[in-house]
Design a protein around this nucleic acid. Structure first.
Length: 399
RNA sequence: GGUGAGAUAGUCAAGUGGCCAACGACGGCAGACUGUAAAUCUGCUCCCUAUGGGUUCAGAGGUUCGACUCCUCUUCUCACCA
């Protein structure tokens, strides 16, 4: 039981620091029922979560299964500085009201994965504001510049003469101090957070908290292309707020290889269960597509409920497996008679009439499921279902 | 501050007076095959009712019958020196 818990916790992690401590905590839980705390920090800027972010949340949920209380920290104070990790854009200031709104939005998304009963949502301004200038100065004495510059992106920026603001040095210190204030046993973060996470250990020692947090880092989730990290700007993401049909379809569109990665990092299935599925696929008793469907189902159900997942799957079958038209699609009213290429453009399923013509030539355009061969075709009065390729549909009402 | 190199379509990157709407690669879209996979193969990939027309190669002028290609200025980027 204990071994299984440990394996589940280690599953998919990029790196664990102080694994022994985690073992001890688990042991104390299984033998004496002692709980422990796991901290994870989040930015209060607009919580536009995608599945990449949920990797961390899943890990937190796993911890909850094995006796952890989650300290879900919203970095309202530190947001004023801006984490220098990655981009060094100056941040816009968030009003307290906006932070409150974002925090609420976080909760609705996050509690689809986490157990609210075992989660404390905390704001670091509540103790960092009380630190005062004396406390702040004291904090700065615990670390030195040379070591600060060891941090990867500081080092790069220093070498390349890109400016580093002193306040940015405060960020890791304050994040580390959060662990002091919360007396966290474990902290979770992405691999890019390593330096900041380790700072927690350092400060807990310096402030004699009586323990040093273990650190567990999760890898970056690959996006739909399977190569680059999942991110909104790259357009290869599955948003937590995506509608069920999209979510289901997107999961199903990942490659088989990537599917296992998603299983590892996103599924609530146990390692044993996943292992069994893998065996089934290699032996040919399970069809990979069925397996992927079950994953898509699981993920869709998590964010939209069982019913929506079933509906999404049915809709998907209808459109793709049986190549019928979708139940719902955008409706456009057009003045007729209208040239087919123009109509496709007006319905937003083609970017230009030139592109529309090319697609007609290739046989990619269908009206009411019938292939269009005449690129001069005029649409008369009536209602049509226009289609380009396999997934772009529109309903056109020609007046 | 000095010197040199460069800026080409979504990205990278050829082209150094007409054969250029511009090689190629990646990406994207479509077709075949499939499991809406992946892999593979094929086609397309500035706009326009179009065997033609229009607008493009950082920006503005100029030379020329003709410029992405030559000249001038401007803006920006990079490298080396200080």
């Amino acid at each position: 039981m204990m071994q299984e818990a440990l394996q589940e916790i280690q599953r998919g992690t990029a790196e664990i620091i102080d694994n022994e401590r985690i073992e001890k905590l688990l042991k104390a839980y299984f033998e004496e029922g002692k709980t422990y705390t796991v901290k994870a920090g989040f930015d209060p800027t607009a919580p536009d979560l995608h599945l990449g972010h949920t990797v961390l949340l899943h890990k937190l949920a796993t911890f909850q299964k094995y006796g952890a209380r989650i300290q879900f920290l919203i970095g309202d104070f530190t947001a004023q500085i801006g984490d220098p990790t990655g981009k060094s854009e100056t941040r816009k200031q968030l009003s307290p009201e906006q932070i409150q709104i974002n925090a609420e939005s976080y909760k609705t998304q996050v509690f689809k994965i986490l157990d609210p009963e075992k989660t404390d949502v905390v704001f670091n301004a509540s103790w960092l504001n009380d630190l005062g200038s004396v406390g702040m100065l004291e904090l700065t004495t615990t670390f030195n510049v040379a070591r600060m510059l060891e941090r990867d992106d500081f080092e790069k920026r220093y070498k390349s003469q890109t400016p580093i603001s002193i306040s940015e040095f405060m960020y890791p210190l304050l994040q580390g101090y959060d662990s002091v204030a919360l007396k966290s046993d474990i902290e979770l973060g992405g691999t890019d957070q390593k330096f900041n996470l380790l700072m927690g250990r350092h400060l807990q020692r310096t402030y004699e908290v009586g323990k040093e947090q273990a650190v567990l880092m999760m890898p970056i989730l690959e996006g739909l292309d399977g190569v680059q990290k999942m991110s909104k700007s790259l357009g290869n993401y599955i948003g937590v707020e995506d509608v069920p049909n999209d979510m289901f379809g997107k999961v199903l569109s990942v490659s088989d290889e990537l599917m296992w990665r998603y299983f590892e990092l996103l599924s609530a299935k146990t390692l044993k269960e996943i292992e069994a599925i893998k065996t089934g696929v290699t032996e040919g008793t399970l069809h990979p597509k069925k397996v992927k469907e079950s994953l898509a189902h699981e993920i869709t159900a998590r964010f939209h409920g069982e019913e929506a997942a079933v509906a999404a799957q049915a809709e998907f079958d209808k459109v793709h497996a049986k190549s019928q038209i979708p139940t719902e699609m955008d409706i456009f009213e057009l003045d007729g008679p209208i040239w087919i290429a123009k109509a496709l453009q007006e319905c937003n399923i083609e970017p230009s009439t030139s592109q529309a013509r090319r697609d007609i030539k290739q046989g990619a355009v269908k009206i009411d499921q019938v292939k269009v061969s005449d690129e001069q075709l005029q649409l008369e009065r009536g209602e049509y279902v226009l289609q380009v390729g396999k997934r772009k549909f529109a309903r056109a009402k020609v007046k």
